[in-house]
Design a protein around this nucleic acid. Structure first.
Lengths: 248, 248
DNA sequence: ACAAAAGTGTTAGACCTACACCCATGG
DNA sequence: CCATGGGTGTAGGTCTAACACTTTTGT
C-alpha cells in the first residue's frame, strides 16, 4: 500500500492517465422512506429476490451510476423497485464499515431518508418483480444486512428533527384536520401531547394555517382543515424553530 | 444501463462471481480538522503539490483502502499528510455530486470533521513532502475543488452543535480558565456572550468543574482553572442539552 | 494608583405547563 | 340523547435576559 501513501501524486497520476484506481469498493444508496397514515408511521421495504439474503426484506436501494447524482440514484431506485415517487429526501449517513462481510466486494452505501404523503404511498407494479410493501415501524420484519440499524438511525433523526424544524409537509395530505398533525407528532415521538399547548405552539410559529374548509369526520364534531404555509415552512426549515440558547 | 435496472439480481451476480462491478466511482475521505488557540478557530490545510490544482490549498484526505473503515482512513490520511493525530472525528456529509468535473474519474468523498486540542496542533514533518498549515477560519485561502464549501458546512455543523451538545473537550487544554471557554464559544458563534449568564448556564449543566489550581495570567486577577467532567460530558453528549420542546 | 481580567446577584418579563369544560355532529 | 372528536383560556411557576460594580493581581 506504499504507493497509496501520497494521495496527491497518486490522484494526479490517475487523473491524467485515466487509469481506474484499483480500489475495490462499490458505491450504493439506500432509501429510508417514511409514510404516515391512520396514526401509524410506515417504512417502505422490498423483498430480496435472490442471494444469501433471499426472501428477507430490505430497504430499497442500489448502485449509483457513474454520471448520476446520489440523490437521483435514490429516487431512481425507489421508483424502480416500488413505484413510489419521493419528493423530499435528505442525506442521512454513509454506512461503509462492514468490511468483514465480503472483503472482495465491499459496498459503501449512502443512506437518504425521505417522506411521502398518503397520496404518494400507492405501490405500483414495476417491471422488477420484487415484492414491495409498507411496514408499520412497530412491525418491521427481520431485515437483510444492517438495514434494521439504518432504520433506527433514520427514526432517531426524524424524531430529533421535530425539535428544530417544522415537520409534516411531506407526510400529511394537502389539507388536514389539526388532529392529524397532533397524531403525527405523537406517533413519531411515541408519547402523549397536550392538545391545547401543542395547538398554541404550532399556530404561533405560523407554518400551519386555517382554511375555510371542514373535515367530514365519521363521528364527532367536524374540524376545520388546515394547510401548511410553505413560504413560512421553508423559512423555519432554514432558521430552525428551537432557538432557545440565546446567549448574549 | 438496462442491465443495472434490477439491483438485486445484479448485486448477487457480482457477489457470487466476484466480478468487479464496472462502476467508475472512487471513494475518498476528507478531514476538516478544527483547532482553537488564542481566540481564533483554525482549520488544518495541506498544499497540493501536483496537478491542475497544484499550489492550491486543500483539506487533508485521500482514498479509502479496501479493508479500512472510513474513519480510520481519515485518521491515517491526516496523520500522513500533516503529522496531526486526531482523537475526535464525526461524519459530516458525503459529497459526490460534482459529476461534471471529470466523468471518467468521479470521486465521491465522505467528509469527517474533527477537533484537536492545542497540544496536538503541532505539525510534524512527514515523509510526504506536502506543506501543511493551520489557517484561521477568517483567513482561508482559495481552496482546491469544493473544499471551501465543505468547510462552510463543517462550520455550520460545529455552530449548531453548540446548541445541543457540550463542546470544548477536544478543543481546549486539560485545564483552562473559564474565559477560554467563553472565548471559544464567542469565536465559534461569532457573537458576544454575557459572561455572567454564560457561566451560570454552563456550570449548572455540570460538565465543567472547578479545580483548585489558578491560572497565572500575564495581567489582571488570576482565574481558577476548570476541567471537563468527562463522565457528565459524555452523558450530555448523548442526551442533548437543549431539551426545550417538552410537549406533553 | 491604575490597568487588566475575574468574580458575582437580582429583578422583570417571557415562556411553559398543567389543567377541564363546552360544542357540533352523526347515529 | 349519547358517543365521538373539536375547540378553547388562565394562573402559577420556571427560566431567561438584562444589567454594573467589586476583587485580585502585575506594573
Amino acid at each position: 500500500m506504499k504507493w497509496l501513501n501520497n494521495l496527491c501524486s497518486f490522484y494526479i497520476c490517475v487523473k491524467y492517465t485515466h487509469l481506474k484506481l484499483s480500489q475495490n469498493i462499490n458505491l450504493a444508496v439506500d432509501g429510508i422512506i417514511f409514510g404516515y397514515q391512520d396514526h401509524s408511521l410506515y417504512v417502505l421495504l422490498i423483498k430480496q429476490k435472490y442471494g444469501s439474503q433471499k426472501g428477507k426484506w430490505a430497504l430499497p436501494g442500489g448502485f449509483v451510476l457513474d454520471d448520476e447524482r446520489l440523490i437521483d440514484a435514490v429516487k431512481r431506485e425507489v421508483k424502480e423497485e416500488t413505484g413510489v415517487e419521493v419528493q423530499y429526501l435528505e442525506q442521512l449517513y454513509t454506512f461503509g464499515d462492514d468490511i468483514d462481510r465480503d472483503p472482495r466486494f465491499r459496498v459503501v452505501s449512502v443512506a437518504y431518508f425521505g417522506t411521502v404523503n398518503p397520496k404518494r404511498m400507492v405501490l405500483k407494479p414495476t417491471t422488477d418483480a420484487l415484492d414491495a410493501q409498507w411496514y408499520s415501524i412497530d412491525e418491521i420484519p427481520k431485515l437483510a444486512f444492517d438495514h434494521a440499524m439504518i432504520i433506527k438511525v433514520a427514526l432517531d433523526r426524524l424524531r430529533s428533527k421535530l425539535n428544530y424544524q417544522p415537520v409534516g409537509f411531506n407526510l400529511l395530505d394537502n389539507r388536514f384536520p389539526f388532529s392529524d398533525l397532533e397524531q403525527l407528532y405523537m406517533t413519531i415521538l411515541d408519547r402523549d401531547i397536550d392538545r391545547r399547548n401543542f395547538r398554541k405552539k404550532i399556530l404561533s410559529l405560523g407554518f400551519v394555517e386555517e382554511t375555510d374548509e371542514y373535515h367530514k369526520s365519521g363521528s364527532g364534531r367536524p374540524g376545520k382543515l388546515f394547510k401548511f404555509n410553505s413560504k413560512k415552512y421553508k423559512e423555519l426549515e432554514q432558521e430552525g424553530i428551537n432557538l432557545d440558547i440565546k446567549f448574549a
